[in-house]
């Protein structure tokens, strides 16, 4: 009992520290590393409550894949510079956010602590956890029976997500239209076409860099749009 309590308190401290780090640290890389700490802590709590399989994928998928993906994006975009946290540009956002947070936490704790120390509710009769059966077997049994339709749908969801990510991050170059080719030898013309496309691409990039510099100009176009 003592050991359990000790483990819980230690991991809880790590979790809270990690969460605070995600919110408070200014460098995105540090934020990501703090997130890993929280995720590991949650994985330990999963093990403590017998959810061994979930603890494993918590570490492998969350800490191992998702956070690494975050870090890749941070490096790719080069946004690993510190963000100023001194003041919020939206008026009253920060006090309102803290007030909302306090309200949520306060109300949750009121609800949790006022009803005593035990969870009420009906214990399961259908999907009871059988102590003799390994956790992973029990989970697989419900996933492939009661939840098999949802399980199949998630495969569609993941496929769609992958396709969406590819489409979103694809660099769109100018398409080459064969019908536009004038008469002549194909190889030369193709080369000419590629050259023209390259020039066009450069122009586009220049325009893109120009886009971001004058802040006021963008404002005026947005005004005009309205």
């Amino acid at each position: 009992m003592r050991v359990e309590m000790f483990t819980f308190l230690l991991t809880a401290a790590i979790c809270l520290a990690g969460s605070a780090g995600v919110v408070l640290l200014r460098n995105p890389v540090h934020n990501a590393l703090s997130l890993v700490a929280t995720l590991f802590g949650v994985a330990v709590l999963f093990i403590q409550q017998g959810a061994y399989f979930l603890a494993a994928i918590q570490v492998i998928v969350y800490a191992g894949a998702i956070v690494i993906l975050f870090l890749f994006v941070i490096m790719l975009l080069g946004v690993d510079k510190a963000e100023g946290l001194d003041r919020d540009p939206i008026l009253g956002q920060r006090p309102a956010a803290i007030a909302a947070g306090v309200a949520i936490l306060g109300l949750s704790l009121t609800a949790l602590l006022s009803v005593g120390s035990r969870v009420t509710g009906q214990a399961s009769t259908l999907a009871a956890i059988d102590g003799s059966e390994p956790n992973i077997n029990a989970l697989a049994k419900v996933l492939f029976t009661d939840y098999v339709f949802a399980f199949e749908i998630t495969s569609v969801l993941l496929t769609v997500a992958v396709v969406g990510a590819v489409v979103l991050s694809r660099k769109a170059g100018p398409a080459i239209d064969v019908a536009e080719f004038p008469e002549g030898t194909t190889a030369d013309l193709l080369q000419a076409k590629y050259d023209a496309a390259a020039v066009e691409q450069e122009v586009l990039e220049e325009v893109a860099t120009e886009d971001e510099t004058p802040e006021g100009e963008a404002e005026t176009t947005e005004e005009a749009l309205r």
């Binding site: 956002q93 956010a97 909302a100 947070g101 949750s108 609800a111």
Partner: peptide, 20 residues
């Protein structure tokens, strides 16, 4: 987007208050 998120948070807090 953060204003919208604030709206959701306040709504969540109000729902919690109702439940409590």
């Amino acid at each position: 987007v953060r204003s919208y998120a604030l709206g959701i948070s306040i709504g969540g807090a109000l729902l919690l208050a109702f439940i409590v």
